[in-house]
Amino acid sequence: MSEIVNILLAVLYLLVFPGFLFLFFYGLFCEYFDRKLYARMQNRVGPPLFQPFADFVKLLAKEDIIPEKADKGMFSIVPLFAFAGVLTAILYIPIWRTDAVLSFEGDLVVVLFLLTIPSFALFFAGWHSTNLFSQIGAVRTVTQLFGYEIPFFFACLAPALIMGTWSISGILSQTVIRPEVLILLILAFIIAVISLQAKLERVPFDAPEAETEIAGGSLVEYTGRRLAIFRLMFNIKMVICAALITALFLGGPVLFPAVPGPEFIGYLLGFVVFLLKTLFVVFLLTMMRTVFARVRIDQLLKFCYGWLIPLSIVQFLLLILVRSMGWFA
């Protein structure tokens, strides 16, 4: 009996909450939120609430074209592959309380790994489209990956270092015990948000898909439902990355100070706090997109190696110093 319940629960987690269904709607909402803010900051109207959903449905109905010279298998499987990758990651991220659905020592690394899958998927998608622009985009995707991934890893591992655990849920429970440590992580938070922008390939780091340069990069040949899946994947990736950053640097669904009361109210409150915090991260990302111009791919690499990586090393040294001196313990 309890086994069946467990299985049902797992299916529920994966497909409904916090899995596919929740991410689907929240991802679309985040796209709306991003676009609306972007528009408002540009003194425009912006899309109505259901625009992203309408776009998604419209794309599903569109004709599906595979280029004659493309590798058909790769071309069709890659979007699903990327999609599955990001979906899995949510299970390890705490959403309504301090522990996630699944967790084990080292799940932080798994999540970071799962979040790189979309970039590789983009590379394969672009490369196997055999279009010149998409191939240039694919090469840029990978080039960019080497730029942002190192500072992003460093920044995300910083909380693990100071909290002494490699599990996201563990980090979060430690945060509840000693929230003052988060002050030490401000630098890591900034680095994480900046490299996240590069990871999500948004202005100013959108060279791999730069519309005015290479006509959309890797996805230039994608149409119809495959493009819809890719776009949904990007939205969900944004949500998950924002959730990860929330969990690592902003205390996830925890509200300081904790409110006494029955458990489920705590969960509900935690969920609302989680939503607000992720929206705050999305707001930061939108802000960056609004006020900057696109940098070239070489400038991005220079920026990553010249600024972000040294800064994240500085952050690491600081944390090691703090730990060895036993402060904030």
């Binding site: 540009q42 425009r44 202005v203 100013p204 519309e211 900057f292 111009a293």
Partner: peptide, 12 residues
Amino acid sequence: GHEIGFDTLFMY
């Protein structure tokens, strides 16, 4: 501005 992805400048 639009060519370098600075759409905000473009709009303003």
